[in-house]
Amino acid sequence: MQYIDNIDTRFQDLFAAFLRDRTNSLAASASTAHLDEDTIAAFVDGGLTLRELDPIVGHLADCGHCRTSTAALLRLEAEFADAAVPVREAQTESAGFAEALSSWFSKLFGSSAEGVFAHGEKGEKAVEDEKKADDDPQKDDI
């Protein structure tokens, strides 16, 4: 047994190959549904409760398809975690992108982006008026 005791690395490689082989075999015969995007995102975010985790971890341990998505998102999470997002970056966007965005909103709302972005063009007075209106108990939410 001395030989085995000195082969940790080789054994790990061997076991990893066994797992890959097993994963492929399971993928070929998979009949269960995969995890949805919301579940994978929540798992990667780490916010699921203990009760929620059991079935998800069990599934990920066996499903290479879902684990590959999860692993890719974990990598991306690590890459983007420390990248601060500039607030209101859109206000300095180029005209070219604004046009592109306008096009998307046209597709979405059937109108130009102006109506949507009117919110962003309010002056201080408008903001104050809105705040007052928000405080008004008679006011509807919309």
Partner: peptide, 20 residues
Amino acid sequence: KLLIALYHVDNLKLREISRL
């Protein structure tokens, strides 16, 4: 199983796994 698979099959780095 999941930790080993993430590390050895999906080749995640320890740093990436530890984020979980």
